[in-house]
Design a binder for these strands. Structure first.
Lengths: 155, 155
DNA sequence: TACACTAGCGCAACGACTTGCAATAGCGCT
DNA sequence: AGCGCTATTGCAAGTCGTTGCGCTAGTGTA
């Protein structure tokens, strides 16, 4: 959807959810700093999953002075805005899902180390099962379930 | 204490899965050390869930010289023997399930902080759903799923 | 454009967990 | 009971993530 910001703004590249971040922050009394800009630039190219450590490394590529604490704190802020979502990988380390268009859980194969996303329908089945059991309202996005993938099971 | 060390030992308390640990270790070329004894003694009284940090603290109560690295390493060994099982809590920290008589997953309420075990039947439903989806063989024991419990949902 | 207000930054220290390594001490064997 | 082999230990150093704090620098306002 072209989403014309004015009568003649037809050349906008395809609105990215990141485009309005600065304004969104400011309108909430927060600030748009160089450090946040760096992180957002990195996130732009990482739609998918990334570990916090990797994000820090990538930020440092662009700005040597990047500090871990700042990155973690900015990620917290972005999470409040729904732009990223964090969970814990099988080893307990932080993992971020960039732009969670759709909440989904993850599977991790302990044998080959690969990860998969749980399909929405399957995720729904899990959510339903737990809702029926204890009336629990699951937040799938925060979880990585481990086990063995089909391929590794065969071996 | 009655427990006669007589020729006929009929007063043994009821065989605990821990009773044979020393022998099991030795017969596998491993060793039964004072440090391991301390940890096992602690575990004996903790059937259920414990964090690694708490275990270390309890060990230190009994033996001031307890070192974290030793405890972690011993837990790894015990896990190989199936006596404990570790997973990661919602904050990514290690949690140990002592004597997992039955593999089960956990639920954590982000609102009130309580945790529940997932009932076997419900767990089975989850395992089945993922098996059907990707042929994935889930290891439920390693997971804590977060969300909101029934009570907190109502509020 | 200058100013004050305060969000955010970088630092330093801390807690949880891991790992390499040299010294110690269980265990089986004689 | 003594001996040697090597599993374990304890330490030190390292990684990942968090937190308290004083100083810096975005922002809205005048």
């Amino acid at each position: 959807m072209p989403r014309a910001a004015s009568s003649h703004a037809a050349m906008v590249p395809a609105a990215s959810p990141w485009d309005g971040v600065a304004e969104r922050l400011r309108s909430n009394g927060l600030r748009w700093t160089p450090q946040r800009r760096t992180l957002v630039d990195v996130l732009r190219e990482h739609e998918g999953h990334v570990t916090a450590t990797e994000l820090i490394a990538r930020c440092r590529e662009r700005d040597q002075t990047t500090t871990p604490s700042t990155v973690y704190r900015t990620l917290d802020v972005l999470e409040d805005f729904g732009l990223v979502r964090h969970g814990h990988g099988p080893d307990g380390r932080e993992e971020y899902h960039v732009l969670p268009d759709q909440v989904h859980g993850h599977l991790y194969c302990v044998a080959c180390g690969a990860t998969w996303e749980i399909r929405p329908e399957t995720g729904a089945a899990i959510v339903d099962a737990l809702a029926a059991d204890l009336g629990f309202d699951v937040d799938l996005s925060h979880v990585t379930i481990s086990g063995r993938c089909q391929t590794c099971c065969r071996e």
